[in-house]
Amino acid sequence: MKKEIEIVAYRCKKCGKIHYPFHDRCLACKSREFEKIKPEGMAKLLTYTRIYNLPWGFDQRYLTIGVVEFENGVRAMGQIHVDESAHLETGMVMKPEWGPVRKQYGEAVYGLVLKPAG
């Protein structure tokens, strides 16, 4: 696990709308000027699912995936690393980390990893 969340989000310099992923023009005002921002603070779970029919490339029984909103408004998808029996609910606070989410050519691919806070 790495401490730094390697997500770069984009705040429109004209209207302030936050984008993640990158768009060439602002979804709200079509401006092309963005300020790069990092997600800040803890992450609120907006929705989630646990899937049992995994795509090619995953050699495990299930995956838990959710969408969170950070304290500064950045929204992102991530993997939730919890036991199958763990209680999850929308609105709960998750601790974000940057860790391995899949393997490609034997190498770990890093991404947003979420665990229930506290």
């Binding site: 992923p21 989630y48 029919n53 995994l54 795509p55 090619w56 992102a76 991530g78």
Partner: peptide
């Protein structure tokens, strides 16, 4: 493979790497 094929329509950087599938999107 079929699940992965359909999942290729998700965002290649911010969705696909997490293993999200269309049933997963529908679940959320």
């Amino acid at each position: 493979r079929a699940t992965d094929f359909v999942a290729t329509l998700t965002h290649p950087q911010v969705e696909y790497p997490y293993g999200i599938t269309l049933p997963g999107m529908a679940g959320m």
